[in-house]
C-alpha cells in the first residue's frame, strides 16, 4: 500500500514476503532474528513468530514488510498457494547440512515461477552456516542453481546473526525496483507502488487431476 504523504515526496511501500522451506531448516529463527533481533532461546516478548512485520527506511523510502511464515512439512505443502498469493517476495530457506531441504527449495522455485511468474523476487537462503563443517550442499551448486532460475542466493546463520540484515535489505531493494518498474509500466505515476497485486496464476501441473476429481476421490468443496 502506498500512502505517500499528501505533499511530501517520500513514498511508502508495503510488501508481502512469504517464507518457505522444509520444517527444521530454521525459517522461524531466521525471521525472528531479523524482526526481533534475537535468537529465540532467551527472551520472549511475543507469543508467535508466524506473522511478523518490519518497518524500514531505505534511502527515504518507507517500507512495510509483512512476513508470512508457512508450514514446511510435506503434508502442508499443498496449502502453499493460499499463503503465497499476492506475494512480492519469497524467501526459500534450506539447511546447508541437509541436501533434501535443498531439493525442496527447488520444488518451491518451480511452483512459484509457475504460479506467480517473474514478478516475485526470489531469495534462496542457505541457513546454518555456523555448521559449515557438516555442509552437504555445495556452495557452487546452490549459487549456480539460484542464478539459473533468476533468484539470488544468500548464506545466513540465525544463530550467529550473520547475513540476515543483508538478505532482507537486498530483497527490499529488489522489491522496490520491481514495484517502480510496475508503476512505470502502468504509466500513471500515482502512488500505487508496491501494492500492484498480481492474481495467483494457478496453472494445473497435474492434468490427471481432473480425471481424479471425476473419479470422486476429491471433495468438491
Amino acid at each position: 500500500m502506498a500512502s505517500g504523504g499528501a505533499g511530501g515526496g517520500s513514498k511508502s511501500y508495503s510488501f508481502k514476503v512469504v517464507l518457505l522451506g522444509e520444517g527444521c531448516v530454521g525459517k522461524t529463527s531466521l525471521v525472528l532474528r531479523y524482526c526481533e533481533n534475537k535468537f529465540n532461546d532467551k527472551h520472549i516478548t511475543t507469543l508467535q513468530a508466524s506473522f511478523l512485520t518490519k518497518k524500514l527506511n531505505i534511502g527515504g523510502k518507507r517500507v512495510n514488510l509483512a512476513i508470512w511464515d508457512t508450514a514446511g512439512q510435506e503434508r502442508f505443502h499443498a496449502l502453499g498457494p493460499i499463503y503465497y498469493r499476492d506475494s512480492n517476495g519469497a524467501i526459500l530457506v534450506y539447511d546447508i547440512t541437509d541436501e533434501d531441504s535443498f531439493q525442496k527449495v527447488k520444488n518451491w522455485v518451480k511452483e512459484l515461477r509457475k504460479m506467480l511468474g517473474n514478478e516475485i523476487c526470489l531469495c534462496i537462503v542457505g541457513n546454518k552456516i555456523d555448521l559449515d563443517k557438516e555442509r552437504h550442499v555445495a556452495i557452487q551448486e546452490a549459487e549456480g542453481y539460484a542464478e539459473s532460475v533468476g533468484a539470488k542466493h544468500y548464506h545466513t546463520s540465525a544463530k550467529l546473526n550473520k547475513g540476515i540484515e543483508e538478505l532482507f535489505l537486498d530483497l527490499c531493494k529488489r522489491m522496490i525496483e520491481t514495484a517502480q518498474a510496475d508503476e512505470r509500466a502502468k504509466g500513471n505515476g500515482s502512488n500505487q507502488a508496491g501494492t500492484a497485486r498480481r492474481g495467483v496464476q494457478i496453472v494445473d501441473d497435474e492434468p490427471q487431476n481432473a480425471a481424479a476429481a471425476g473419479g470422486g476421490c476429491c471433495s468438491s468443496g
Partner: peptide, 25 residues
C-alpha cells in the same frame, strides 16, 4: 498431500484474491 487443495479450491482462491486485489486498487 498434493491433492489436499482441489482444483476448484485453487480456482476459488485465485478468483477471490484477484477480485479483492482489484477492489483494493
Amino acid at each position: 498431500p498434493k491433492r489436499i487443495l482441489t482444483q476448484e479450491m485453487r480456482e476459488s482462491i485465485k478468483q477471490w484474491s484477484k477480485r479483492r486485489g482489484t477492489e483494493a486498487n
